[in-house]
Design a protein around this nucleic acid. Sequence first.
DNA 1: TATTGTTATACTCTATAACTATA
DNA 2: TATAGTTATAGAGTATAACAATA
Lengths: 160, 160
Amino acid sequence: MVGKSNDENNTGSGVPAGIPEMGEIVGYKLRRAQLFVFQDFIETFEKMKLRPAEFSVLALIARTPGQKQTEIAEQLGIKRANFVALMDSLERRGLAERRKAEGDKRSHSLHLTPEGTQFVDKMSTVWRTHEERLVERLGGPEARATLLDLLGRLLGEKPA
Amino acid sequence: MVGKSNDENNTGSGVPAGIPEMGEIVGYKLRRAQLFVFQDFIETFEKMKLRPAEFSVLALIARTPGQKQTEIAEQLGIKRANFVALMDSLERRGLAERRKAEGDKRSHSLHLTPEGTQFVDKMSTVWRTHEERLVERLGGPEARATLLDLLGRLLGEKPA
DNA sequence: TATTGTTATACTCTATAACTATA
DNA sequence: TATAGTTATAGAGTATAACAATA
């Protein structure tokens, strides 16, 4: 299924032994692929002026409204200090808002505005065109499912 | 083989329709996995004080000595302006060196020093322990080969 | 004119410490 | 004392423009 080109196969060519080729380094290829996918994402959302981090924050708020900043930030691996400016921007654009939480007066509960809800609908539709482009490159939906599974394994997720 | 949990399967639960779940977003999961792998890489090479970019530069020079800066930088997707400091550092550490190229007096040809060659040997051995850790997480060498193949497809590489 | 290496600079992401107001 | 949000700041990584030497 896959072309393996390990250095073990070397005969007497001029290639140094033991030194990895870039194409067989998981971290390197992962990085290049991630940059490629983000590039496509950024171009896809250029008109909507939406960055990957903003997309993910809006998606999380849309799916589970009312969570506080620290909760959203933690799920995305964003430091709460860095989350502030991000949320400020979404609030200034009128897409999301901080509300005073009921019980705990320290925390803010995050919600979409009506405009934000509309924006997220459009965003989700546009995202699908981006994702579909990736599926085509991968060679079909099964390949995408396999990729998500393998990435999940790296991240230590429980297999379904 | 893979647990698919698309939103199409939603019945009357309270989950908003059409909004992607983070776990099904290729770019997001790719990013998280890349960060995880780089974190392991950085910890693995903490004692050798080696960053991913430095690793890749040394590996390329080791495998193909004599290339000029622009060539190495371009292969790695690094802007030639940003490559300068990187190469300065490797040179200050005595691992690699710039030599005046024969024909073209503008360009430098890049080589490892003897210490650099020794360093790259050690580096390659250490890298294998890191890569082996990833293989275990993925579930075996075949899974790694499949992952490299899928990432290669995203990058538009020719199938073997 | 074009290219190689270089400097300077700016912008985004990320990380840490410290403050405030609440708990 | 500890936590949520915030501010300030510093460090990577990355991007562009412009320059000198050479082609």
